[in-house]
Design a protein around this nucleic acid. Structure first.
Length: 587
DNA sequence: ACAACCACTTAGTACCGGTGCA
DNA sequence: TGCACCGGTACTAAGTGGTTGT
């Protein structure tokens, strides 16, 4: 692929017109004949996303491969041959046997119920108790299979790799408006047992196999339409250029729609990403006005206005998510700002020498716990007392508010403003401020990168991006410490030698000491970084919340290679920004 | 007004394969 | 040469927010 730098004039959809910008663009030589420059293409209005779209359709999950006859299932201690359909579902369970959740009541109940639906009537009458089912031979068989896969010869592994590459080349790309673009997820999700996050009421349910007849294909009329597998038909072929997806189907657990879409490196995703940060930068210009407004609204005589103002304060100060309502019993019980309940807050008139402290404790997205003690203004505190008065723990804190009301209000304050823009804005501005504050131009490269990671970490903490500490964390910390100790010893040795050699090769020994000192420093920095990162995930904020131009400008300003901050995939995703941002870019 | 639906972004985790070390 | 480790990636669930229909 050839990379070409140039100026792209983009008029963004609708009424919003954004200024001209430089943008790095990938051009496919083979397609250059038709459309030599991406930036010569017109921008679409009225929600049109493309003019031409051609692709090969999805890759289906491989069909079920029945167990060999020596791998047996036992019911109540006795061998029982299962029908192919029932056997397949049983293997899903067998593959998860080592996981804790196969012991959970809800998981077992849901699985058993759905499994029975797949049984023949004979099987249904025989199998009446999940506890009497013995999947252990199946489980052992799959473990052996995975061992065998690991032990394959280089040649066999190479063959598989080549086959995957072939599939990727055939199905992994599409043509959208004269550009070959990478598809993000061209494989249909295979059948299996649903495992939601946290305490999910539907865990263990059977996620059914997707067939051609479930698939809606979206492509342009004048494209070569993808062919369904022989003997099958698509549910529908449509030509909707107001959407970006290539393929969709309805999933059976929540009844929601799943999509095949393009990779983040694609034009369509990149432009949207850029737009998102431009909206956040527009918020920067008016955020003080909005803050003054909501502070004023804390005093409103209308309860709904006060609630709106306090919620917005939380969203702004704590980077909480909006908090849409959710259907009870359909998903795990998690909340965001607007859906907070009385039970999620504890008010402390005084705590640890601070006045008006609010203690938050709730499960947010992905059932990640949000726990925080925050001193708030007296007015906020008094309002919260008011909102909580005469309510049960399970009552909504903001009973006069929801995300729709809040977003309508925000829309009036700034064009394109919604609750999530505050998260983007606060994340990016925090990175910018932290970098400005803590980067020391005297530092060497590893120390500067430590500063960067610390700035990134401040954002991840703000956004509550947590991770389970890696299973091998303690061990890998220990290993690193061992390395550090060894390096220290080596340094001591080198210093001793330098002292001894008054005349011979002093210069080279000085250099050796210096080199070892540098290595030691690098290791120590690495240890600090890793320790501070134990329970914090940096990836999510880096990928979704931090305007990449901030990081790129920082790299340029301090002479750090961009490769140290962004890996290959990330550089592809942020190609637009890499070209756009000079060393003086400020968010 | 609000519920249902749809499209799209954001999210953590499991897994894989390359790398570097004993 | 085998193995641990780590970064990268695939996967897919879980959010947000707009639109549509009643």
């Amino acid at each position: 692929m050839v990379q070409i730098n140039n100026v792209l004039v983009l008029a963004l959809c609708g009424a919003i017109l954004v200024a001209c910008v430089g943008m790095l663009v990938y051009i496919l030589p083979s397609l250059c004949f038709f459309m030599p420059f991406r930036w010569e293409e017109e921008r679409y209005t009225d929600g049109v996303k493309w003019k031409f779209l051609e692709h090969k359709g999805p890759v289906f999950a491989p069909p079920y491969d029945p167990l060999p006859s020596n791998v047996k299932f036992y019911y109540d201690g006795k061998h029982m041959k299962l029908s192919s359909t029932a056997e397949e579902v049983a293997t899903f369970f067998a593959k998860m046997l080592d996981h804790e959740y196969t012991t959970k009541e809800v998981f077992r109940k849901n699985f058993y119920k759905d499994w029975r639906k797949e049984m023949t009537s004979e099987e249904k009458s025989k199998i009446t108790d999940l506890n009497k089912c013995d999947f252990s031979e199946m489980s052992e068989y799959f473990k052996a299979q995975s061992e065998a896969r690991k032990a394959m010869t280089k040649e066999d592994k190479q063959k598989i790799k080549e086959e995957n590459e072939r599939i990727l080349q055939e199905y992994g790309f599409c043509i959208m408006d004269n550009h070959k673009e990478r598809i993000a997820n061209f494989r249909i999700e295979p059948p299996g047992l649903f495992r939601g996050r946290g305490d999910h009421p539907k865990m263990g349910m059977l996620k059914r196999r997707i067939r051609s007849e479930d698939i809606i294909v979206n492509c342009s009329k004048d494209s070569k339409h993808p062919k369904p597998p022989p003997g099958t038909k698509w549910k529908e072929v449509r030509h909707d250029n107001k959407v970006t997806w290539l393929v969709s189907w309805t999933e059976n657990i929540q009844g929601s729609i799943k999509y095949i879409m393009l990779n983040p490196s694609s034009r369509i995703k990149g432009e949207k990403d850029w737009q998102k940060y431009e909206t956040a930068r527009r918020l920067k210009k008016c955020v003080e006005r909005i803050r003054a407004q909501y502070r004023d609204d804390w005093k409103s005589k209308e309860m709904r206005i006060r609630q709106r103002a306090v919620a917005l304060y939380f969203i702004d100060k704590l980077a909480l998510r909006a908090g849409n309502e959710k259907e009870e019993g359909e998903t795990a019980d998690t909340v965001g700002c607007c859906s907070l309940r009385v039970e999620h807050l504890t008010l402390h008139q005084e705590m640890g020498g601070q006045e008006y402290v609010v203690e938050f404790d709730f499960l947010g997205k992905d059932s990640i716990r949000y726990y925080n003690k925050v001193p708030v203004e007296k007015r906020v505190f008094k309002n919260l007392q008011l909102f909580m008065e005469d309510k049960e723990p399970e009552d909504d804190l903001f009973d006069r508010l929801n995300t729709s009301i809040l977003n309508k209000h925000l829309q009036e304050l700034m064009d394109g403003l919604t609750a999530k823009v505050f998260r983007t804005y606060n994340a990016s501005i925090t990175l910018q401020q932290q970098l400005n504050e803590i980067t020391n131009s005297e530092d060497n490269v590893p120390a500067k990168i430590l500063s960067y990671n610390r700035a990134n970490r401040a954002v991840a903490i703000l956004c509550n991006h947590q991770r389970a500490p890696p299973k091998t964390f303690e061990k890998s910390m220990q290993n690193l410490q061992t390395k550090i100790d060894a390096k220290k010893e080596q340094l001591a040795d080198a210093k001793r030698e330098l002292k001894m050699s008054k005349y011979l090769a002093v210069e080279s020994k000085k250099k050796a000491v210096q080199r070892i000192e540098e290595q030691l420093m690098k290791l120590e920095v690495q240890a600090t970084d890793r320790e501070e990162n134990k329970q914090i995930a940096l990836g999510t904020s880096k990928l979704n919340y931090l305007d990449p131009r901030i990081s790129i400008a920082w790299c340029k300003k301090f002479g750090i290679q961009i490769e140290k901050i962004y890996n290959k995939t990330q550089r592809e995703k942020f190609a637009w920004a890499i070209d756009m941002a000079g060393k003086d870019f400020q968010f």
